[in-house]
Write a protein that binds this DNA or RNA. Structure first.
Length: 245
DNA sequence: GCTTCTGGCATATTTCTAGC
DNA sequence: GCTAGAAATATGCCAGAAGC
C-alpha cells in the first residue's frame, strides 16, 4: 500500500537522481543505483508477479518463503509482455535496479516513536543458467525484502485489476495505483493537480503533467476508475466505475 | 507443437529545451 | 502557459532457432 501511495518507482529507466518527498511529519528518500538508475513502474511487475505467486501458495496452505523461483518466460506471459531477446536483457536490468534502489523512510511505523528505516526493493537476485544446445535456459531466483514479505502476511496489500498489466503507459499505471489506494471502493476521491503530480513521481513540469492528464481524461480507459479534471479549480476527481448506475 | 530464447526494425513514451 | 521537436528509453511485432 505504501508503494502505491508514494513514488518508490520512477516512470522511466535511467533516472539517477535521488528524490526526497515530505508529507506532514513523514519523509521518504529514494536513492537509485548509480549504474542502472532507479527502479521503474515496469520493474514493479516483478514484485507483483512474485507476490501473486506467494499469495497462491498461502491460499492453498503451501510453505512460503522470501525466496521466489520462476522462469523468465512465465513472468513475461503473466505480465502481458512480449517475449524477445531484448525482454530477457531488460529483465536482468530490472533486477539490478530493484536490488540497487534504496528507500529511507519513516512511513512504515506510525506509532508515537518516530523511527527511520532503510531498505532495498529486493534483497538479492540470481539467474541460474542452464545450457540447452545453443540456448541458455535461465531460472530466476529473487529474495524479497523482509518488510514486503511481512506486509503480505499482515494483509497490508491491495488487490489490483487484472487489466493493470494492459496499461502500457507508466504514468497511467501510477495514476491507477493512486486511484486504487485512495479511492478504493469509495464512490469518489478528489485531489489537487499539484498533489497528484508529486504522488505520481513524474519529473516533468506541471504543465506537461496537466497535458498528459487531459489526454488520459479524454481516452478514459483506466480499469475501475473514471478521471475528471476541472481546469477552473485545478482539482482531479476519480469516480469508481462500480458506483455508477 | 509447445516452450524458451534471440535479434531486428518500427513505433511509442517520458523528459528536456526552446520558442511563442 | 502552451506547443513542438529532439534525445533517451521502452515496447510491439515478427521471423526464426533449438530442445523436449
Amino acid at each position: 500500500m505504501s508503494s502505491m501511495e508514494h513514488p518508490f518507482f520512477a516512470l522511466k529507466g535511467g533516472d539517477r537522481s535521488t528524490r526526497r518527498y515530505v508529507s506532514g511529519d513523514k519523509t521518504i528518500t529514494v536513492a537509485p543505483n548509480a549504474a542502472y538508475g532507479m527502479a521503474t513502474v515496469f520493474d514493479k511487475d516483478i514484485w507483483i508477479y512474485a507476490i501473486s505467486k506467494l499469495q497462491e501458495s498461502i491460499n492453498v496452505n503451501k510453505f512460503t518463503s522470501k525466496i521466489i523461483l520462476f522462469t523468465p518466460y512465465d513472468f513475461f506471459i503473466s505480465t502481458n509482455r512480449t517475449v524477445s531477446g531484448r525482454t530477457y536483457k531488460e529483465l536482468k536490468k530490472s533486477l539490478e535496479r530493484l536490488a540497487g534502489t534504496r528507500i529511507t523512510t519513516n512511513i512504515l511505523y506510525s506509532n508515537k516513536k518516530q523511527e527511520s528505516v532503510g531498505f532495498g526493493l529486493l534483497d538479492s537476485w540470481r539467474i541460474v543458467e542452464d545450457k540447452r544446445g545453443k540456448i541458455d535456459i535461465g531460472m530466476v531466483e529473487i529474495v524479497l525484502p523482509e518488510w514486503l514479505y511481512q506486509a503480505l502476511h499482515k494483509k497490508q496489500l491491495l488487490k489490483i485489476s487484472s487489466d493493470y498489466f494492459r496499461i502500457r503507459k507508466p504514468i497511467d499505471r501510477r495514476i491507477y495505483e493512486i486511484a486504487r489506494k485512495h479511492c478504493g471502493n469509495q464512490n469518489e476521491f478528489i485531489v489537487s493537480l499539484a498533489k497528484l503530480h508529486v504522488k505520481v513521481g513524474s519529473m516533468s513540469k506541471q504543465s506537461e503533467f496537466k497535458r498528459m492528464l487531459k489526454r488520459l481524461e479524454k481516452i478514459n480507459y483506466l480499469p475501475d476508475y473514471i478521471i475528471l479534471y476541472d481546469v477552473k479549480t485545478d482539482l482531479v476527481k476519480f469516480t469508481n466505475r462500480n458506483s455508477i448506475t
